[in-house]
Write a protein that binds this DNA or RNA. Structure first.
Lengths: 204, 204
DNA sequence: ATCTTATTGGGAATTTAATCACAATTTGAT
DNA sequence: ATCAAATTGTGATTAAATTCCCAATAAGAT
């Protein structure tokens, strides 16, 4: 069953909440989730229909089993191997971001063109020369790359990376990439996200 | 006029594209934007209706004027002051992220509780003791904080920050925050974003 | 001058997402 | 045993977002 993207996003947030409740509370209601996220409680119940878990009238949803069901449903325990392209500030921060591991996102290696960075290790992830990506993509069967290079190199690097066999690019740069049709790009547009957040409030 | 959030996000991406075209091309068509972002071209034209800029039949939209209009419309030139709470990997990376400046996002100062970090300077931004935030929020009139502390401290720090007068929290942690009603939280859920990207592709 | 083609603008239709409303259920209190 | 309250599940409704469609326009070719 394919779950709508927005539902996936909310399910991960319910999981964050469950993480905090586990151990201290046995049940949680849709209203509790709804209040945390400022959404309608029936929305929550509809979302939870996607994971195979039913609530109890007058009581709510069982914390532990719901948490486990979301994990199964979204594959948190399934390892998703990725490369990080660009061992700069953001790339390094993401390499050190432990929450990725908790959700199955496994950084296999990093790539850069800076000789001072190549050969070093960041949080246990080795930094390779970008020209090695072709060889390593094939050898390790990695299909996903996180792109964190400076804007001015983003297009060039993305094209290079696409040629190596990478099929999914999670793009953290402010460059909109032009890549072959068989490569899927997901723009993590932080600027846009901030503006969505603040745009309709004039006192920022 | 309030612009829907999704439109705001796409407008910033059109701007990214225009940034690359400026100087080399005079006109751009809705189809060109649409192809870059894999969306329908009439969607692009409807988005562009929100900024006061009309296209020319058979030619498209003028690159320079459209770029300028988007900037005006979304307030890229208007300074938006923010604090970064948490001078760890992600906080430091965001403090060094120059694209923020280009879009008017101005990091005024950083806060942490680690004595080794307090007093240092990251990309020109001074790191203060978190207990100073109350004083500085008032003095500098800052209303927005970027939260990048470790998950286990997120709720505690968010409550503290909210008490200082901060009204907007851009939350990069994997903790869903419980804050007073007059504080608006925007969850930058990277885990959820990644799963939205990859969930319906089974070969990751 | 006429034709072809690329493009906009915008109405209509469709699809997707969110909200509302309420019956059914279950718990705990009286 | 009865009643009040909290909660789920879901059908109906509303709202928002996207796509489809095509007339109108203007550029460039013939």
């Amino acid at each position: 069953m394919t779950i709508p993207e927005k539902v996936i996003n909310r399910l991960t947030m319910y999981h964050f909440i469950l993480e905090d409740m586990e151990g201290s509370e046995k049940y949680v209601s849709s209203t509790k989730f709804a209040n945390f996220l400022n959404i309608d409680n029936s929305q929550v119940r509809k979302d939870l229909k996607y994971v195979d878990n039913q609530g109890k009238c007058r009581v709510g949803f069982e914390v532990e089993s719901l948490k486990r069901k979301i994990e199964e449903c979204l594959g948190f325990k399934k390892t998703k191997d990725v490369f990080i392209i660009g061992a700069g500030n953001l790339g390094s921060a993401l390499a050190k971001y432990d929450s990725f591991n908790d959700y199955g996102l496994n950084v296999i290696a990093m790539f850069d063109k800076d000789l001072k960075k190549i050969g070093t290790t960041i949080n246990g992830k080795k930094v390779f020369d970008i020209v090695k990506i072709n060889e390593l993509t094939g050898k390790m069967g990695v299909k996903t790359a996180i792109l964190t290079v400076p804007r001015e190199f983003a297009q060039e690097v993305a094209s290079y990376v696409a040629k190596s066999g990478i099929k999914y690019i999670w793009n953290f740069t402010t460059c909109i990439l032009d890549v072959p049709k068989d490569v899927k790009v997901w723009n993590e547009n932080l600027i846009g996200s901030f503006l969505q957040f603040t745009q309709n409030d004039n006192d920022i």
